[in-house]
């Protein structure tokens, strides 16, 4: 019974956890793939080229 209540609560949150995970994932990608700050660019340079992100 308790489990059922917990499950309902979890589903009751709807897409919120998923949306948050998507935002977090896109945030990481922006950091590793797009931000042009030179320290980040230099560290991620080879990865950006190999993974198809626009570089330079």
């Amino acid at each position: 019974m308790t489990t059922k209540t917990l499950n309902t609560t979890a589903t009751g949150l709807g897409f919120l956890p998923a949306v948050f995970a998507v935002v977090l994932g896109l945030g990481i990608m922006t950091l590793t793939g797009h931000v042009q700050a030179s320290a980040l660019h230099d560290a991620a340079h080879d990865v950006r080229h190999a993974s198809g992100f626009p570089c330079h």
Binding site: A21, G25, I28, M29, T32, A43, A44, V47
Partner: peptide, 15 residues
């Protein structure tokens, strides 16, 4: 950075 990038991909995919 490759591991980070792919973790970003995986977060979007699993969500």
């Amino acid at each position: 950075f490759t591991m980070l990038t792919y973790t970003g991909y995986a977060l979007v995919m699993v969500a």
